[in-house]
């Protein structure tokens, strides 16, 4: 069943390190698995764990969080806060019956384009082994989807 399975992965990247690492991988034309779609944030510390849950419930099979190496955070120490939340989130996921391995934290500096590329490919393979998450794939719940779309489109006053 999983042989032709192409996982969809959402990546949350830090603007200062890993997003630039992704840029560098691009500039150097390094090839990696095309399954990851990135969201840029100013810091891995910005990662609200609900973002991860939203991604997983919205059809992603895995979530990759990338930040600066410990001690190299652009905002001094906020990546440690990301680390704490990540560890807690993994416990929560386990409690919910979701493999905690579907979420991965990777440290990649702006100079580590090669690491970004190889970690991405590696993570895609790991998720491929786990198989699809099938948590609220949009095609399964069209009506719910409509409702949710309307919610997200509401602009708070």
């Amino acid at each position: 069943m999983t042989e032709n399975f192409e996982p969809t992965i959402i990546g949350f990247t830090c603007n200062w390190c890993s997003y630039r690492a992704a840029d560098l991988a691009g500039t150097a034309r390094m090839k990696y698995a095309p399954n990851v779609r990135l969201i840029r944030m100013m810091c891995s510390g910005r990662l609200d764990p609900t973002f991860v849950l939203r991604a997983l419930s919205g059809g992603a099979d895995g979530v990759m969080i990338t930040g600066c190496h410990p001690g190299e955070c652009h905002y001094i120490e906020q990546n440690y806060k990301a680390l704490r939340r990540y560890l807690l989130l993994k416990r929560v996921l386990k409690g919910m019956g979701i493999e905690p391995e579907r979420v991965k934290l990777v440290w990649a500096s702006a100079a580590e384009g090669a690491k970004f590329a190889s970690e991405t490919t590696l993570f895609v393979e790991e998720i491929r082994k786990l198989g699809p998450l099938n948590w609220g794939k949009p095609t399964e719940r069209l009506d719910d989807l409509q409702e949710e779309i309307s919610k997200t489109e509401e602009v708070p006053a």
């Binding site: 100013m42 810091c43 910005r46 990662l47 609200d48 652009h74 806060k81 949710e148």
Partner: peptide, 30 residues
């Protein structure tokens, strides 16, 4: 950096440029 935005349990802190609404919408879009 937005760390406090992510931490606020009441959702009282908002971060311009990288608001919850923007990121959640981008997740759905992706």
């Amino acid at each position: 950096c937005g760390t406090c935005v992510a931490a606020c349990p009441a959702g009282a802190i908002s971060g311009t440029g990288f608001s919850n609404e923007q990121i959640l919408a981008q997740i759905d879009g992706l």
